[in-house]
Design a protein around this nucleic acid. Structure first.
Length: 912
RNA sequence: GCCCGGAUGGUGGAAUGGUAGACACGAAGGACUUAAAAUCCUUUGGCCGCAAGGCUGUGGGGGUUCAAGUCCCCCUCCGGGUACCA
């Protein structure tokens, strides 16, 4: 062994020891701790409110609910992606806003309080501390001075402030915009009726209103559940008991008024098409017509909504929802008992019984008949719960021949089925069935039996599109119908019977008047409670807070505060705005700051929020835009959904799941460690019962944060669902270690000219990594860096310049190692703001390339060709090649040359 | 049922209509070591072959094209969302 230039002979243990000393070991735990401390102490990632830089980038993660379980490996996936882009953007001279906070109101802390008496604020604080620690250990470059917490009175003061704005805004359908309630014109006839009528009129226009609503209640937990907490089988997701419907006074928001804008606003957004589609479906715009039907022997008319006015000639009966106001009026005396019994039964049923469990339709005849306006036919009016009260007019005309639901109903109750559309089908047997009314046809075709000469109306022979246009025009001319747009989107139930949420800034006076607090009275804080048990009848625990609850006005009037609190969505509806100016005490944010930072340039989070959160946020934002609080119509310009991280799990041949700690692996196969049965490896969501939950803390201590980050990015495309494989983490750790060993070893870093291969590889890598970061394709960026490292390691030594450039492009992915290597290369301050290297064209060019030559589309051999060779030359060279001749024989081939890409020799196939 | 994704080696995955399987894991063999770990090197879709080479191959079936994992039509399976919205 050579030491100090001389040969020494050492015993084996000593040789090993010296080797160890000499070898640069990648000790990630030390490196990561050191740089996390440095970033924190130097506030490296503090975002300056420097508005002179026109290049701004607001990059946002969906903030987490800080659960007691701590971070799971799904969190770092999106966070790492945005962190890479943040770091990349900073190195490209952008002023980057990249904040983090806590969506900390929520059920679990309250449930825990019910069980243990611990104040939810206490639980929340602890959980946030834990989340913050875990997130900091990932080396994410958040500006922690902007941390927010939705449960902080300094935050929810402004949530309440926005609620006041919603309360004081009405939607002007003429301009399609929200306006201040003071600008609402009250019609003279209402004005004439006095103060109460005026107030009712105004209240009926506010975006936020207070009214009776049906909610889910879990009798077992004595708690009211959000819709999302009720599973498909009607059970409460927390306890498994069946929930029931209850009527309670609730706050509602008129989001459907914004349906059209929420729909059209999607067009210009750079969002995944699938998410846009989900929002569109949720909004559920449909075009059709409202048609009035006369009722035989009565003044009243029944108005129905239909998307198929063209099928009016096929309407053979009519259905009202059980809750329809005309039901009792039109019920004939002999049907009274049966109808009332039906209504009672329907009222007891949950929505669930009315849908899922009861595809088998029920209904009852009212005894009345309506007149079909197109042909004067008498058709029976039924009541059935397959018609919903909240959609359209709560009444339909039934066309059993051309609507599946009506068909089922008509079949069951023996109602007439008249086919009025000859279907576009080739199958003659099916066609006959449809024409005879024995099968339902909802698609296109040509109308038959659809004319009324007396009225000068005929659809016969037309197709669906023409039919709809013709009939709608006729209905409008006759004044019995109008074209109408409907939305599935309903008013948003905006209150929860909970303690741990934002209190509503309202007072209910004993005389029934509702007052909203003034801005100066905010925040309205939550009272401390001794018991967090919900009140009787599903009332919020706040109903126990007598002192807080009761208010006496200056006039001596007694009042009561709202016991409901806002849903968890409230805080998350606008948090991205608060990051802009998180400590502002006199406004939610300063206007100039909002103008500079908004909109969010990139928003990354899970697809589980595809509809609700993103729709709610957009709604609030549009209201705030209309009333001049924010400067953009849409909050999130670009959206990206990361895919879920799953884990391997095991099941027996019969499909029974086996917890991972009961599984042993031998020769790539899996066995039950007790029964010895061979098991199948499957991919499943991480769950406690499968014992396949991966804890980021464990991964960090075993492999380091940089490896965790790199692995999560290397697993596959960010948007894909992919299984965690611990072995894969080893692979990226290996890559980081090799990078460290190459660059941290001073002997490997040389001065002077770089080797041509290394230089080309370096610049190719810079190009690839730059493009891939821009397109959120981190997996291929990482593989490009691995390729470079393989090339560089083979050479053994690289120049300082090469090393510096490589460290820079590696650093967004593995920032701790990046800083460490940057320092080892002789720098003394962070590389976070060092300019991003440029891929230089001159090093990317190559004079020759291996041109693949295929014969009839199949690659046969490769040929080294100069770049830019004319086609004729290429053909000549190829045809002279022995390997080509072998395939061509004496045939006369056609040669297709794609310059600098590929050559295809086409030999006519001989026919036998 | 409807809507949206997806299916590529033993595994995760890569591939502007142009060399399918980059990169990584795993596996096998080898070097170093008393040994192990670590590290390094080689091989690695399947089939035939000593090799050269050939055949085959991106869930299945058709089609367009000089050329298809990629575009079009039909089907199967898997994942997510949604559910009587007239």
């Amino acid at each position: 062994m050579k030491l100090f230039g001389k040969d020494f002979l050492f015993s084996q243990p000593v040789r090993q020891y010296i080797k160890l000393l000499a070898m640069k070991e990648y000790i990630f735990s030390e490196i990561e701790k050191r740089w996390q401390k440095y970033w924190e102490e130097n506030k490296t990632f503090k975002t300056a409110d420097d508005f002179s830089n026109p290049k701004k980038y607001y990059i946002l993660d969906m903030f987490p609910y800080p659960s007691g379980a701590g971070l799971h490996v799904g969190h770092p996936e999106g966070y790492t992606a945005t962190d890479i882009i943040s770091r990349y953007k900073r190195m490209n001279g952008f002023n980057v806003l990249h904040p983090m906070g806590w969506d900390a109101f929520g059920l679990p802390a309250e449930q825990y309080a019910i069980q243990t008496g611990t104040h939810p604020a206490e639980t929340t604080r602890k959980n946030c501390d834990n989340f913050r620690r875990q997130i900091k250990e990932l080396g994410l470059s958040y500006d922690w001075d902007r941390e927010i917490n939705t449960t902080d009175p300094g935050y929810f003061k402004w949530t309440q402030w926005i609620f006041i704005r919603l309360f004081n805004t009405w939607f002007d359908s003429e301009t399609g915009k929200g306006r201040d309630i003071s600008e609402l014109e009250v019609p003279e006839e209402i004005r004439a009726k006095g103060k109460q009528s005026i107030n009712e009129f105004i209240d009926s226009h506010r975006l936020a209103y207070y009214d009776n609503a049906q909610i889910w209640y879990c009798p077992s937990c004595r708690i009211v559940c959000a819709n999302e907490e009720v599973l498909n089988d009607g059970s409460h997701e927390k306890c498994g008991h069946q929930v029931v419907r209850k009527n309670l006074k609730q706050w509602m928001l008129r989001i459907p008024l914004y349906a059209e804008r929420l729909l059209t606003g999607l067009e210009d957004l750079d969002w995944p098409e699938g998410i846009k589609e989900m929002q569109r479906n949720w909004i559920g715009r449909s075009t059709g017509a409202e048609v009035d039907f006369k009722i035989e022997g009565m003044e009243e008319k029944i108005r129905v909504y239909t998307t198929r006015p063209d099928t009016l000639f096929g309407a053979t009966y009519m259905v009202l929802a059980p809750e329809h106001p005309l039901v009792s009026k039109i019920t004939s005396s002999d049907k009274k008992d049966s109808v009332e019994a039906y209504l009672r039964a329907a009222a007891l049923k949950s929505d669930l019984d009315r849908t899922d469990l009861a595809k088998d339709k029920t209904g009852v005849f009212t005894g009345s008949f309506a007149i079909n306006p197109v042909n004067g036919t008498k058709i029976p009016v039924w009541v059935a719960d397959y018609v919903l009260t909240g959609y359209g007019t709560g009444a339909i005309m039934a066309v059993p021949a051309h609507d599946e639901r009506d068909f089922d109903f008509a079949k069951k109750f023996g109602l007439k089925i008249i086919c009025i559309l000859s279907p576009d089908v080739d199958d003659q047997e099916q066609k006959n069935k449809i024409l005879e009314g024995n099968e339902c046809w909802a698609d296109d075709g040509a109308y038959i039996n659809s004319s009324n000469p007396d009225e000068g109306l005929s659809l016969d022979g037309l197709n669906k599109e023409k039919g709809i246009a013709t009939i709608t025009k006729w209905l409008e001319e006759k004044g019995i119908g109008t074209a109408k747009v409907n939305y599935k989107l309903r008013d948003w139930l905006f209150s929860r019977q909970r303690y741990w949420g934002e209190p509503f800034p309202v007072i209910h006076w004993e005389d029934g008047e509702i007052n909203i607090l003034s801005d100066e009275q905010l925040p309205l804080n939550l009272p401390d409670l001794d018991v967090y048990q919900p009140g009787d009848n599903g009332e919020s625990p706040l109903s126990n807070a007598t002192e807080w609850l009761t208010v006496t006005g200056p006039d001596g009037r007694k009042g009561r505060r709202e016991t409901n609190t806002m849903p968890q969505w409230a805080g998350s509806c606008w948090y991205y705005l608060r990051y802009i100016d998180p400590r502002n005490d006199s406004a939610p944010f300063e206007k100039v700051k909002e103008k500079y930072w908004m909109p969010v340039d990139l928003y990354v989070g899970g697809a589980e929020h595809a509809v609700l959160h993103l729709l709610y946020s957009r709604f609030w934002h549009k209201v705030l835009f209309d009333i001049g609080v924010v400067s953009t119509d849409e909050p999130f310009f670009k959206l990206f959904n990361q895919g879920m991280i799953l884990a391997f799990a095991y099941e027996t041949t019969t499909g029974a799941k086996v917890p991972s700690d009961m599984v042993s692996e031998r020769d790539g196969k899996y066995y039950h460690s007790e029964t010895g049965e061979e098991l199948k490896q499957i991919v499943a969501k991480m769950s406690k019962s499968l014992k396949n939950v991966i804890n980021p803390d464990d991964v960090i201590s075993k492999y380091g944060a940089d490896s965790l980050r790199l692995y999560e990015m290397f697993m596959g495309p960010l948007e894909a669902v992919k299984p965690w494989d611990d072995k894969g983490v080893r692979g990226v750790l290996n890559f980081l270690s090799r990078s460290y060993r190459l660059i941290a070893e001073p002997d490997n870093i040389i001065e002077g000219e770089e080797d041509g291969d290394v230089l080309r590889s370096l610049h190719q890598t810079i190009k690839k990594v730059t493009e891939d970061i821009e397109n959120l394709r981190f997996n291929t960026a990482i593989s490009a860096m691995m390729i470079f490292l393989n090339t560089a390691t083979k050479k053994g030594k690289i120049t300082r310049d090469t090393a510096l450039k490589f460290v820079k492009i590696l650093s967004p992915f593995a920032p701790h190692l990046g800083e460490e290597l940057w320092m080892s290369l002789g720098n003394d301050k962070t590389l976070a703001y060092e300019p991003w290297p440029l891929a230089e064209e001159e090093y990317l060019r190559s004079d020759t390339f291996e041109c693949p030559v295929s014969v009839n589309g199949k690659k046969r051999f490769e040929l080294l060709l100069p770049v830019g060779l004319p086609k004729e030359e290429v053909v000549r060279i190829v045809l002279e090649d022995e390997r080509a001749k072998k395939w061509i024989g004496d045939a006369s081939p056609k040669v297709i040359v794609v310059p600098d890409r590929i050559v295809n020799i086409v030999i006519p196939v001989q026919k036998d």
